[in-house]
Design a binder for these strands. Structure first.
Lengths: 341, 341
DNA sequence: ACTAACAACTTAAACGTTTAAGTGAGGAAA
DNA sequence: TTTCCTCACTTAAACGTTTAAGTTGTTAGT
C-alpha cells in the first residue's frame, strides 16, 4: 500500500486535485463550499493522506526549512557539542523555528568540507551560520539568495544579518572585575585567536582592561588552544608547572574554565583560594561546577530566537533590510573569584 | 539573477538536460564521452549550478534526509538539551550521517503536538526516535514506510529497529556497587517512571539489587520528577529536610546527580563524605563535576552511530530485517562514592 | 430580460529533476 | 554487404504539488 497522493484524495472525494489543494491549505483566495470541504477532509482522512513536501516545495518555492551550520570545534571530532553553548543555542533555534512552522536542518562542518555545502545541497528558506567562517567562502555564499544570519561573527557585509554581543566589552568587564578584586597577574585562556572572531574580541577587551589599569600583559600568561574541557585541564597543568605566578585567569568559555578548575584541583591548587577564575557565556554548566563559576552572561536563548526571527521577518517582507543586532551582556558573580588580600 | 537550472546548463553546454543529469550524477549506467563531460562541467561551473534537491527527491524518491525526534524534557521549556545526553547523541548522529551523505532534520516534540508530525510533514529516508513515545501514535507511525529506529525505548515491535542498553542491569550494577561499599539506606532519584521507559528499567534494577541484598525499599526514599539540574537540587533539599537517613543515592541521570551534589552542598552536606552518589550515562559532564561522578557508562556516541548505520543498511538492503541492538555498559568509578565505615 | 458579479469549482502549466525507453551513427562480425 | 552491437546521446514521461487563468451556474441589480 503506497502513499496516497493528492490525486487519490481527489478521486475519492469526487473533485479535482486543485480543489483538494485549496481545501487542505485553507486558501482564503478561493471559496469552497462546506459540503466539498467535508468530502475532501473525509477522503484525506480515509486515505491517511500526507502531502509530499518535496513536491510542495518544488511548486511553491518554499521549504519551511532553516539550515543551521555549526562549526566543528575540533577537527575529526564528532562532538560539535563539546561546548554546551552550541547545544543551548541550537535548542533555542529549533524551538523558535518549530513554533513558526519551520524545521531545522543541521550540519556540522567537516575539516575539508566546505561549510557552504549545506547551502548548496539543500533548498532552504534561510540559513543560520554560527561562529566564524573563512572569508573566501562568504563570497560564494552571498550568491545564495535566501536570508542569511551570521551568529557571533564580526563580518561586516550587508548581505547578512548579524547577531552577536559586545565581546570586547565582555572581556573587559571580566578582566576589570578581577582587577577590582586586587588581582594583577591575570592569565588569558581561550580557543584559537582568529581575526574577527569572538575570542580575539574578548582578548582585546582583556588587553584594554589591563592597560587601563596600568598592568602589563605577559605573553607567557596568554594561552590559546581549543575550546574544550581537556584543553582547560592541560592549561592548568602548564600554569602550575611554570610556578603559577598568576592569581587569576580570564577564560573565554565556561567549559574551558571548568576544565581549568579541574586541572588546578588535580595539581593540588584550589579555586578561588589559590587562583580566581572568570568564564564566559554563562552556559547552564557554569552553575553546576564547584565552585560555581563567575562569568559573563549572555542570553543564548535570545540569540537563537532573534536569529530565527530575522529569517522569518526577511521571508515575510522582501524589503526587510539586513540588521546587525547586539545583545546585552552582564557580569554574573558566583564563587570562583576571591578578593586578593 | 535567478538560480540556474539543469536546463540552463544543458543549453550552455549544447546538450540535453538528461545528459547533464547523467554527467553530474556520474551514472555508470550511461556512457558519456569525455568531451561532453568536460563541456557540461564547465557550463555547470560557469552558471554556478546547484541542483535543486527538492526536484531531485521528487523524481528519485530519495531525500538523503534523516529525521531525529527528540523529546522535550520539560513541557514549555525550549531546552531539549538540558540533559547533555541528547546533545552528545545528536552530535554523533549528525556526524555519522554527514559522513554518509545524509543530512539531519531535527525536531523536538511539543506538549500538545504529535511527535509523528515530523514524519507526516517531511519526506525522509529514515527516522530516529529518541526516548519513549506513547503507544497509540506508534501505530500510526508504522504506516510510514521508511526505516525507523527507536533509541532507548522498550517497544517490542518488529516494525522498528531498536537500540539501547540493559538499563535494568545498569541500575543493578550501580546499586550493588553502593551496597558493596557498605551502604544500606540508598535513595533512588529519577525522572518520571513510565512503563517501559529507561527510568523504570533502572528502577527495577535498583529494586533487584536491594532485594538481593535483603534491603528494604522505602517509598519515601524514591524520588521521581524531571531529568534536570534543578530537580536534582530540590531533591537534595527535600532529603535534607527529612533528616536524610540515606547515606547514598542512585540517580538515573548524570545531570540530575550533579544537581543533587550541588543541592547537598548548599544544605551543608558534602559528597561523598556525607552521602555517596552514583549517576547514569557517563555524559562528558560527569567528569567535570566536583567530586567527579561515579556512574554507569554507556557509549552514547556508538548509540548514535549504530542508529544511523541501521537506517543506511535498511535503505541499501530492502530485506534487511529490523534489529534489536543492546550495547554494553559498565561501571566507572570516580570520586562520588565513599566506603561506609 | 440583460448584464454583472460572484461562488464554486476545473484545466493546465509549471516547479526541476530522474530515468526508462528510444534513436542514430559508426564499427565489428558474419 | 548486411546485420548486429555498442556508444553516445535525446525524448518524453513521471514525481506530487501549487496556482494563474479559465469555466460554469446562480444570484443580484437595473
Amino acid at each position: 500500500m503506497n502513499k496516497a497522493s493528492i490525486k487519490d484524495v481527489a478521486k475519492l472525494a469526487g473533485v479535482s486535485a486543485t480543489t483538494v489543494s485549496y481545501v487542505l491549505n485553507n486558501k482564503p483566495s478561493q471559496t469552497i463550499s462546506k459540503k466539498t470541504k467535508d468530502k475532501v477532509f473525509k477522503a484525506a482522512k480515509t486515505l491517511n493522506y500526507i502531502p509530499n513536501l518535496n513536491a510542495r516545495s518544488l511548486a511553491s518555492k518554499k521549504t519551511n526549512l532553516i539550515g543551521v551550520v555549526i562549526p566543528q570545534t575540533e577537527p575529526g571530532k564528532e562532538f560539535m557539542f563539546s561546548n554546551p553553548f552550541y547545544g543551548e543555542l541550537l535548542s533555542s533555534i529549533e524551538y523558535t523555528a518549530r513554533l513558526n512552522g519551520f524545521h531545522i536542518l543541521i550540519s556540522g562542518t567537516a575539516e575539508n568540507q566546505s561549510y557552504i555545502n549545506i547551502a548548496k545541497n539543500r533548498v532552504m528558506d534561510g540559513i543560520i551560520f554560527v561562529g566564524l567562517f573563512p572569508g573566501e567562502e562568504l563570497e560564494t555564499l552571498k550568491g545564495y539568495n535566501v536570508p542569511k544570519v551570521l551568529v557571533d561573527s564580526y563580518v561586516n557585509d550587508d548581505a547578512f544579518h548579524t547577531i552577536g554581543i559586545d565581546d570586547e566589552l565582555g572581556g573587559q568587564l571580566a578582566t576589570e572585575y578581577l582587577i577590582k578584586n586586587g588581582h594583577k597577574d591575570i592569565a588569558f585562556v581561550s580557543g584559537a585567536l582568529i581575526d574577527n572572531g569572538v575570542n580575539s574580541m574578548r582578548y582585546s577587551g582583556y588587553c584594554k582592561a589591563m592597560e587601563n589599569a596600568g598592568l602589563k600583559i605577559k605573553k607567557e600568561a596568554v594561552y590559546t588552544g581549543s575550546v574544550d574541557f581537556d584543553y582547560g585541564i592541560s592549561v592548568a597543568q602548564e600554569m602550575c608547572k611554570k610556578g603559577c605566578k598568576e592569581t587569576a585567569a580570564f577564560i573565554t568559555a565556561d567549559v574551558l574554565a571548568i576544565g581549568l578548575i579541574k586541572g588546578f584541583y588535580q595539581m593540588g591548587k584550589s579555586v578561588p583560594e589559590d587562583i580566581s577564575v572568570v568564564g564566559f557565556d554563562n552556559v547552564y554548566l557554569s552553575q553546576m561546577s564547584y565552585p560555581s563559576l563567575t562569568t559573563i552572561r549572555q542570553d543564548i536563548s535570545q540569540k537563537g530566537r532573534e536569529a530565527v526571527a530575522l529569517i522569518i521577518e526577511s521571508l515575510k517582507n522582501k524589503d526587510f533590510e539586513n540588521k546587525n543586532i547586539t545583545l546585552p551582556i552582564s557580569l554574573v558573580t558566583r564563587d570562583s573569584v576571591i578578593r586578593k588580600e
